[in-house]
Design a protein around this nucleic acid. Structure first.
Lengths: 243, 243
DNA sequence: CGAGGGGTTGACGCCGATCAAAGCTGGTGG
DNA sequence: CCACCAGCTTTGATCGGCGTCAACCCCTCG
């Protein structure tokens, strides 16, 4: 619950290069999937790629920059920081997700603070460019809708799974989310900091630590390699049902 | 936490009549705002209006009917019912909101159970009709996007405000939500059942009852007329900050 | 080597879940 | 018209989970 938002700023983001959306190798994941290659020939403003180190603030709630971001690699958290220092994470996003979409629906400012959890690669897309592409390619509008629907599903799951039940149930659900959405090819995922897990589930850091330590002792959670963990899905699902 | 989902079914919904969207007096609120009047001249399938009594199940999670609904009057809750009987409400919607939008993004089934809280009037819109209108009027696509963004904002607020903090803070937040979004012209709102409030905040029915009774005794919440209440907004906002 | 940050563990007290019982209200039938 | 009942709300008593405070460990970095 401590205020760590100032620990890192996005000033250290590194420019990777101009994005070539027509030839993007993960385009089917991204916002621009199945737009024609030539859609990107005459953009009002260019789309650039950046790398952000862990902890970088991509944007802050209630501020305004005319960009949305598409995640190419890494994990991003969307958080709500209250004035009293409390810090609730409302979403965890990975490759293919877009953040800052509220700007497309007339929002003046970002609704959350977006922070890189791991090192991330982002495409930084100017809002006017999106509008231009939407005008020329109505299909993009559908993709934005799909992104929103996807995030709405995540938000609903967040309420049902991560904000309901006992502390042990919530932490178990969180591990299942990490396993389902953020595991690598070995089925291993990065174990988040206790503080982030606390902010995601709305419970105290110490309680999260106890639950995680407990799961490790019970071998429901075990290290695959440095900072990567695997979990016993069936056992954790059991816990989410009967405390 | 008791299982009351079977208490009422939607079979008692009453047909009001064929909707005349071009002349709908609340069209600016609805999904079809600023489509031209003649857009509705040759619909594949007609749009009808229905009235549902309180408690009606409009649709059930994991079932399939090819309709989305637009709320003309009344309050609707979207709930997630777990197999163990627990019941978490993830959204509360009023006039102008659309429900069942997940069907437009390829979802096979509804993601929640939608239940009328008050008596409601709904427009029942066939999915093929939406698709037809989208094809002919790309602007509709934007409106769907706006609806989704709106609901995403609500879901995020739900996490931050109604699923975080002490029981007294959550109930105070809930009253503020009712006051902000569901109050009538006298600034009075219907006080929900304790069970619904419990399912919205994720706390026990008895605890909700205690908090509400407490607020009444402190005159932070007082009856305006039968089942309609008003609240002291400033005092409740105070409570949401310092428990 | 010392300082600092994150994680773990322990002790304690309180919030809130649970169980239980008693008002209240509206509906039903005698 | 009243008795009765069912469902909802309120209130009380009890107890356990978890928030809080504190100490300690481990690791990294200056």
């Amino acid at each position: 619950m401590t205020n760590d938002s100032a620990q890192a700023l996005c000033t250290n983001a590194k420019w990777i290069g101009r994005a070539h959306c027509g030839k993007c190798h993960i385009r089917q994941l991204m916002l621009f999937s199945d737009l024609p290659e030539n859609a990107f020939d005459h953009l009002l403003q260019p789309i650039d790629q950046f790398t952000y180190p862990p902890g970088s603030v991509i944007y802050q709630a209630d501020t305004h920059k005319p960009f949305i971001y598409s995640i190419r690699r890494g994990m991003v958290k969307l958080a709500h920081l209250a004035q009293d220092g409390s810090n609730r994470i409302v979403r965890l996003l990975g490759p293919g997700a877009a953040v800052g979409l509220e700007l497309l629906d007339g929002a003046e400012n970002y609704h959350h603070t977006a922070i890189a959890i791991t090192e991330v690669d982002l495409c930084k897309i100017p809002v006017p460019t999106i509008r231009q592409l939407e005008d020329n390619h109505p299909a993009l509008c559908m993709h934005v809708g799909r992104q929103l629907q996807e995030q709405l599903n995540l938000a609903d799951q967040w309420i049902v799974a991560l904000s309901t039940g006992t502390a042990r149930q919530r932490v178990a659900q969180l591990l299942l989310v990490l396993d389902e959405f953020f595991a690598d090819e070995n089925d291993a995922f990065i174990l988040l900091s206790r503080e982030d897990m606390a902010a995601m589930t709305g419970i105290a850091v110490e309680t999260v630590s106890r639950m995680i330590a407990d799961f490790k002792r019970q071998k429901l959670l075990y290290r695959h390699r440095e900072n990567y963990y695997m979990c016993n899905v069936a056992a954790l699902e059991q816990i989410t049902r009967l405390d």
